[in-house]
């Protein structure tokens, strides 16, 4: 079954062109972006994020224990 979350999350982060680096860390995606201001927090939450922490161009998206798998799927979309 196709999981739509990786695509939705990537779109909410501003798309592949906006992603410098993305890494799964147990419960969260650590994302380094070109431009942190375009992140759509509501869309991230709709895609299943429990929380979003922004610090400039670094955004952490808390997605739960599947973070590593989701990060790999997003890597495949980049």
């Amino acid at each position: 079954m196709a999981d739509e979350r990786p695509g939705q999350i990537l779109a909410a982060l501003g798309g592949a062109d906006n992603v410098v680096e993305i890494e799964g860390c147990i419960t969260r995606l650590r994302c380094e972006l070109e431009d942190g201001s375009v992140v759509d927090e509501a869309a991230l939450k709709q895609a299943g994020a429990h929380g979003v922490m922004k610090s400039g161009a670094v955004v952490q998206v808390v997605v739960g224990p599947e973070a590593d798998a989701i990060a790999e799927d997003i890597q495949d979309l980049l």
Binding site: T27, R28, H50, G51, Q60
Partner: peptide
């Protein structure tokens, strides 16, 4: 760390 202190997971 808010992920833990706010019991997000």
């Amino acid at each position: 760390d808010p992920v833990f202190s706010q019991a997000m997971v």
